[in-house]
């Protein structure tokens, strides 16, 4: 067929970024950044080389891991971690309910709103570990510091999601309850709570899961729990005990994740 078209129309895939200058700026910028980043990253290759046998030792320590020689410490560490997780999740959620309600624009007065929002912002911008360092300074070594850390971190996570959930709720349902002449607390209980409850229970279980993972590390900076045991094992180069601890952590994380998924389905 001879349509009145040029005999050979070439075709090239049009570039993803249409503006040529932007495309080239991005490409050149990325290249410069990468070469600078790689160029300024000092790797002590001889040290890495030296460490490789130790790395192999560590890998072989997994077969078989040594559960027995540090068993009592491990059990104690795990138990401490679990108490910390449970207590911190409960307290954190309990505290985040008023904060979350206060941070919901549609039901809180403005000063309360700003105050609660800033509490949430502070709690969310610091890593758990940084918080843990300070709480360890304040409360001394041990699980209490870890417990406070995780509770505080939970407030940031849970309070923010609760506030967003309340802001997204259906106002007509809440109004219907208010129209019955309910008081403020009654109104919260009947008009707001039923709407946000199912999702919040699910998120609470999810946070339990996160808190367990995090509690395994607050121990490294002195917050008690299995992290402390693990840190000791590494410092003594007891790789087979460390391997055992890591396997236990993986197993518990999987169990918690699985059972919280199951519980979430059961609750909803």
């Amino acid at each position: 067929m001879s349509l009145a078209l040029p005999a050979h129309r070439t075709w090239k895939k049009p570039p993803a970024i249409k503006r040529a200058w932007l495309r080239w700026t991005l490409i050149v910028g990325a290249a410069i950044y990468l070469s600078l980043a790689l160029g300024t990253t000092h790797v002590n290759w001889s040290r890495v080389w030296e460490g490789l046998p130790r790395g192999m030792q560590f890998v072989t320590a997994f077969l078989p891991p040594d559960f027995t020689s540090r068993w009592t410490e491990i059990v104690e560490g795990i138990a401490e971690t679990l108490w910390m997780t449970v207590a911190a999740t409960v307290v954190g959620i309990a505290l985040s309910v008023p904060v979350g309600i206060g941070a919901a624009r549609n039901i809180a007065p403005l000063p309360v709103y700003y105050f609660c929002r800033s509490v949430l912002a502070v709690s969310r911008s610091f890593q758990e570990i940084i918080l843990a360092i300070f709480f360890v300074k304040l409360f001394g070594f041990g699980p209490f510091a870890g417990f406070v850390t995780l509770s505080f971190a939970t407030i940031g996570f849970y309070g923010k999601l609760l506030a967003e959930d309340i802001e997204d709720m259906d106002p007509s349902q809440a109004e219907a309850v208010r129209a019955t002449g309910a008081g403020w607390l009654q109104w919260l209980n009947y008009g707001v709570q039923p709407q946000v409850m199912p999702r919040m229970i699910g998120l609470g279980l999810y946070r339990l899961d996160i808190n367990f993972r995090e509690s395994a590390v607050v121990g490294i900076v002195g917050g008690g729990g299995i992290g402390a045991t693990l840190d000791t094992a590494f410092n003594r180069y007891e790789f087979d005990s460390a391997a055992a601890i890591i396997l236990i952590i993986i197993a518990i994380v999987m169990a918690v994740e699985y059972s919280s998924g199951y519980l979430r389905r059961w609750v909803q």
């Binding site: 890495v48 840190d231 993986i250 994380v253």
Partner: peptide
């Protein structure tokens, strides 16, 4: 996937520091 996810990066770092030495690497 599960193994990588359940171990916090701080624990990974702890392991790697004993293996390849402290530093950015």
């Amino acid at each position: 996937i599960v193994a990588s996810r359940s171990i916090n990066s701080l624990i990974w770092a702890l392991m790697l520091v004993t293996i390849v030495g402290p530093g950015v690497f």
